[in-house]
Design a protein around this nucleic acid. Structure first.
Lengths: 233, 233
DNA sequence: TATACTTATTCTTATATAAGAGTCAATATA
DNA sequence: TATATTGACTCTTATATAAGAATAAGTATA
């Protein structure tokens, strides 16, 4: 056997989520039905679902069913926004300014993003926390994947919810590269703080269900009142 | 049923690792033997082992066996030291200075560390990367848990290996809180760099197999040539 | 309205078979 | 004779299936 049966089932379910047969938030067929349909036992279908659950692609509830994970503002925040207050609570930022422009990609962006796009949208946003300036975030995405994005302004607080609901693009994982830096003059004016302020800079690559890099994001955080929390296990 | 059978098996194996019956690096009994001994099927023993593997408490290799995870310099680095070079490679730092002192704990340390210790060891170390100063790390641990620690200088590059091998204390997870800051005068002299340099400050709590907080660590990184990498999935 | 019943789901456990990996002796080869 | 090479054997974990238990929600009933 070249490939385990449950792996075949896993791939088939992914395919069905991607092509819209199992839309986000909807219930999948039961383990028995899925097994019957694909000609495997309930246990094998179950094993595939366990793998999907591990990657947070589906959610299961005993007695209820298995559901395609729906990106909500809550779980998107919890999963991809790692700032915590000094008391250890999840930080829920308040929206600040927002600007969306279409422009040509630079060489770096073209090389990193899926499809090597020449044209990208740049989404720049500032956020506040407890009335103080907190961060600037600049997201770059291919225009191909997100047609009409600028028309949707003002954008929701969590982009990934929009990506999933309006564009069937499901972000399942991301990688941040963190560095210390100084605010810089331009950004300091935007946020109304001192230009020499030390800041935490996070460069992110976001990957969707099909393994495509669909977003590059550079976030600049003022960590006076928050910290970026990382759990290693 | 109050508790699944596999959970009972899980707890029993943890107990045996903690009390030394299954020492780090050693092979566990096979799934069949484990099941037979505890009066469950191979599959149930297997389910428990799967959970242990998920938390990196054991490692399994088909055809070989299941082994209690041994903290090696390699996997300790890989798992708990998240600096990457610009090319994306794991950073292996070179050791710099080292100092271990015994002192009274402060209120914060006493409250956070296991056993509310009055006496702690403070381990201060600097590290370099490609000949340039990279970081300072200050670890604070209860003297109770690590008797004779200062006599073991020079300490190995990775503390967690020592903790496991010499003190049977297995770190299985840790949490970092990251902030941007400035180097400061004292540390700048230590590392021989400019005092106004922006730095990445990581405050860590380390947890062992029994859920105890056994170490508080404050790391100060110069991120000119490295970045702190975080994967969210 | 409260309670029992029904139905549909995932969860737990058990068993059988497949596949990976080392050991060791028999065999071929220089 | 010394040294590879092969192959059988036995250990291990991995995969697949099936049956019953637990859970949740709706439905009938007193």
């Amino acid at each position: 056997m070249s490939q385990p049966l449950y792996q075949v089932v896993y791939d088939e379910i992914i395919k069905r989520i991607v092509d819209g047969r199992y839309p986000p938030g909807n219930m999948l067929p039961s383990e028995f039905d899925l097994g019957a349909e694909l000609g495997v036992s309930q246990g094998t279908a179950r094993k595939a679902l366990t793998e999907l659950e591990k990657r947070k692609i589906v959610e299961r509830r005993q007695g209820r069913g298995t559901f395609v994970t729906l990106r909500t503002p809550e779980n998107s925040m919890f999963h991809f926004f790692r700032l915590r207050s000094p008391e250890g609570e999840q930080v829920v930022p308040e929206p600040g300014t927002e600007k969306v422009v279409r422009r040509q990609s630079n060489k770096n962006e073209r090389g990193a993003l899926f499809g090597n796009p020449r044209s990208v949208f740049e989404i720049s946003r500032t956020r506040n926390f407890r009335g103080e300036p907190l961060s600037q975030e600049v997201s770059v995405v291919p225009t191909d994947l997100f047609p009409g994005l600028p028309d949707r302004a003002p954008l929701p607080n969590t982009l990934y919810v929009l990506f999933q609901q309006a564009y069937s693009c499901v972000i399942i994982w991301a990688e941040d590269s963190l560095r210390a830096g100084v605010m810089g003059k331009e950004l300091a004016e935007d946020l109304g703080v001192d230009a020499s302020k030390p800041v935490l800079v996070a460069e992110r690559k976001s990957y969707d269900l099909q393994g495509r890099v669909v977003e590059l994001r550079t976030s600049t955080f003022i960590t006076d009142n928050v910290s970026y929390s990382v759990r290693m296990d």
